[in-house]
Structure formats: structure tokens, C-alpha cells
Simulated assay, not measured.
Amino acid sequence: MSLQPDDQATKPPRAASRGWLRGVVLAGMAVVFVGVTVGFVGFLAKLRGVEVAPASRADGIVVLTGGSSRVSDAMELLAGGYGKRLLISGVHPTNAASDISRSLPDNQQLLTCCVDLDRSAINTRSNAAETRRWAHERGFRSLIVVTSNYHMPRAIVELSHAMPDVRLIPFAVVGEKWRDEPWWTRGATVRLLLSEYVKYVAAELRVRLADAGLDLTPELADHPEGSPAPSPATAQAN
């Protein structure tokens, strides 16, 4: 009488090892996917859906260029007495104050007396560095931060890391498209949010490493020599 060989007994060890490794990889990918999904949901929870007046007044106001109506909203806050001066950070080097004044004809006096332009910043990190310099030169201990709602989490990470001694009060600008229809119905908005989430996570990781004494990207990297000029009217689409 012949016996059929036991499949398990004759299964090659290499094949069993590959099956175990495949299971570990799939389990790891599942954990990463769940982690990213939970993190993205947490990121979305940080985003305001409506504009809310700042909780309090501050010494100064800073607006990070790169989105529609950010500067006009910041000017309204300045006119309302929410801050003594306004810094517009990330203005293109070729843009003069007159270019901004033409777009804000109702705020000529404020533009002349109480607005400073930063033309050096090329990204959110250098926005933070230039804002720190401006705030410290003027002795400001509190700032209202004006930027788009999707950009606010990353902006606060960079600004709070650059200025731990300055109190930051966020004012999130909510675009018309965001208010008019759900973000998940527009592919461009979904891509924007995913991209911003990745940048936010990268900024959080870099800041945490820097706080631990491991700065992989020194601040000087914000101003690389020979870097291409940013697009007109803004340093970067923050």
C-alpha cells in the first residue's frame, strides 16, 4: 500500500518563509494605511470651515502670501485694531508697495503707516524665520497669524518652532470654494489637502527631531543660492 506524501511535511522551507514574510509585509502596510488615514482625519479636524474673529488682540499681525483674500483679510484685521502693525510675508521681490495698494484702494493710509513687506521668504519655513526677525526687532510678544485654513496647521508648527516666546493667535481664511461645496467633491481640493497633509507631517517630524537636537535641514537651506525666482505676487503657493 502506498502512502500519499504529507503536503505540509514536504513543503519547501523557502516557500513557507516567503509566505510568512508576505504576511508580515501586508500587516505592516495595513498598519501604515490605518495610521495615515487616522492622521489625515485628525488633520482635517484642525481645519476651520468658517472664518472666526481672533479670540483677542495682539501686538502685530502677519499674513503669509499664497492664497486668495489672505492680504485683504489681514488688512481688515489691522483696520479693526487687532494689531499695531502688519507684516506681509512672501511678497515677490519685483512687487512694489504700489502694486499692493492698487489691489487695496480702501486702505492707503494703513499701507503707508503700518504695513511692512517681507520679500525674502520663499516657503513656510522662511516665512517663520522672517516673521521671527520682524517680531523680535519690534518687541512683539503676540501675533495674529493669517493664512488659509488648510495651511494653518503647518504654519503654526513652523512659527511656534521659530518663536516659542511669542503667543500665536490663528485667523484661518476660508475660501469661497471651501464654503460653497464639500471639499471631497472636488479632485483638485482633495489633492491639495493630501499634499498639505504630507507637508504638515514632514514639518512636524523635522521640528520634533530638531527639538531633540537632530536638525537634518539647517535654516540656511531656506535661502539656497541660485534658486529660481518664485512666481509673481507670492513666494510659494502655501
Rank of each mutant, 00 (worst) to 15 (best):
W178Y: 07
A58P: 03
S142P: 00
P182F: 06
V34M: 01
A58N: 03
T189C: 00
E51I: 07
S160A: 15
L26P: 06
L86C: 07
R85T: 09
P228G: 13
Y150I: 02
L78I: 04
Y82M: 04
S195K: 12
G23N: 02
A202T: 07
E181W: 13
V34N: 02
G28F: 03
W184Q: 13
K46G: 14
R132L: 15
L193M: 12
R138Y: 00
R18P: 08
A15E: 12
L159T: 05
I156Q: 11
P54L: 04
S2L: 04
R132A: 15
F140P: 06
T234Q: 13
A135V: 00
E137H: 14
R186Y: 06
A129E: 09
N149T: 14
W184D: 12
G226Y: 02
G175P: 06
G67S: 03
G28P: 02
H136N: 15
L44K: 12
F40G: 08
A58K: 05
Q236P: 12
L209P: 07
D211M: 15
V207A: 14
V63G: 08
S98I: 09
P5W: 04
L220K: 15
F40R: 06
V201S: 05
P224F: 01
D180G: 14
N127Q: 07
V146C: 03
L220G: 15
R208F: 04
L87D: 00
A45Q: 11
